[in-house]
Structures are given as C-alpha cells and as structure tokens.
Computed example of a mutant assay.
Amino acid sequence: MSDAPLVAIFIGSISDKDVMRSCSDTLSSLDIPHRFTVASAHRTPERTAGLVDELEGQGCRVFICGAGMAAHLAGAVAAKTIRPVIGVPINASPLQGMDALLATVQMPPGFPVATVALDKAGAKNAAHLAAQILALSDPDLAKRIMELRQGFKDGVEKAANELENE
C-alpha cells in the first residue's frame, strides 16, 4: 500500500499467512493502509522490536499479531508499545490452539492484549476491531464500517426471506 500503514499485521511464522490473510483482506476492503509481515518473538526478536519502532515512527496506530503454539508475539509487541495490540491465537499445535489462546490472553497488568477468536474468524475480527479503534477519530471510516455492517444485516435478511419462501 502506498500510504503509511495505520495497522501492522505481524505473523510469527510464514505458515500463519493463510489464516491471517483474511485480516489483511478485511483491512483492504475498508481502505485501511496496513503492512503485513513476518516477525517472530522468538526467532527474530530484534526484527520485531525494530519493526514496532519503525512503524510507530510512520504513524501506525494499531498492531495485530497472529501466532500459534507459544504465541508470545502479541505480548512481545505489547511490551514495546503503548498502542493497541490485538492478538489472534492460531491453531498450530496438537493442543488445537488452546496453548496459543492462553498465551495470548494471559498478559500481566499494564501490558494488555485484546484477544479475539482463533484462526480466520479471529483474524477478521481483529481487522474489524482495529477499524473500530481507528474510526474513533475518522468519521469517514466509521461510515464505511456502518455500511459494511448494513451489508451483513441485509445478507441475513435476504437469506431468511429465501429460506422462508422455499
């Protein structure tokens, strides 16, 4: 995207790309400039810290972190910034995402991570939550969100009518 990113999406591993792509797609559908990249809390902690600093300097306002297994990425980012951090636990282990969920949601006081659902539903909701945070100071974005929600409502009503008329 040509504009400076307002949202950063970090994934802990390239294997998380397909799950988190829906987050990027949702932000794109709302015309929110963002950056989508790999930044591991364990394998590349210096890169992760450097990206947080770099993106804050460019005006990034929300960080979204998707990670599986130990899932410390969101916590590592929250330790580095006071900007909102949203964690997306990813099912990447025999524990079916429970390890990622607990690692993401259990943060010490003063270092919050807003935690959404597992996998693709969580990735989409992370984008929606980031959009709502940004919409607090962007009336045009708030309008786009309301239009999107109206589309969801219209889709349910259409499906209900079709089902009832079968």
Rank of each mutant, 00 (worst) to 15 (best):
T37H: 00
G50C: 05
I14S: 14
V38R: 14
H34Y: 12
E54M: 13
E56N: 14
P33K: 06
P33M: 11
V52L: 06
G87M: 15
E46T: 05
A49Y: 00
C60D: 08
R47S: 04
F36A: 04
A49V: 05
T81A: 12
M20D: 01
A74L: 07
P33E: 01
K17D: 06
G75D: 01
C23R: 05
A71R: 08
E56A: 13
T44I: 04
P45R: 10
L30V: 00
G87R: 15
A67Q: 02
H42S: 00
A71F: 00
A39H: 06
R43Y: 08
S22H: 09
S24A: 15
A70N: 05
V38S: 08
A79P: 03
V62M: 09
P33T: 02
D18T: 11
I32Q: 07
G50P: 04
I82F: 00
L27S: 02
A78G: 03
V19Q: 04
G59L: 11
A67R: 08
A78Q: 05
T48Y: 04
G68K: 15
S15G: 09
D31I: 01
F63V: 04
K80M: 15
A70L: 07
A79E: 10
I14V: 07
T48H: 01
L51D: 04
T48M: 15
F36D: 00
A67Y: 07
K80V: 03
S22Q: 11
A39V: 07
R21K: 15
E46K: 13
A70G: 03
T81W: 00
R61S: 14
S29N: 12
R35T: 11
V62W: 11
D53E: 14
V77Q: 01
G87L: 11
L73H: 06
A39W: 09
G59Q: 11
P84E: 03
M20H: 06
G87S: 08
M69I: 13
P84C: 06
G57I: 09
H42P: 02
A67C: 15
P45C: 10
K17Y: 12
I86W: 12
L55S: 08
G68Y: 04
V85N: 03
K80P: 01
M20T: 02
H72G: 14
G68C: 06
S29L: 03
A71E: 03
T37G: 06
T37F: 07
A76V: 13
G66I: 12
H34T: 02
V19I: 14
I86A: 14
A76E: 03
G87W: 14
S22E: 05
F63W: 07
A74Y: 06
A78N: 07
S13V: 11
T37S: 06
V19A: 06
C60V: 13
V52D: 04
T26C: 12
P33H: 12
L51E: 12
A79I: 07
T44Y: 00
C23Y: 09
R83P: 04
R83T: 02
A49Q: 09
S40I: 02
S15P: 01
A74W: 09
P33I: 06
A39E: 01
G75T: 06
T37C: 12
R47P: 01
R83V: 03
I64D: 02
A76G: 07
D16E: 10
T37R: 13
G87Q: 13
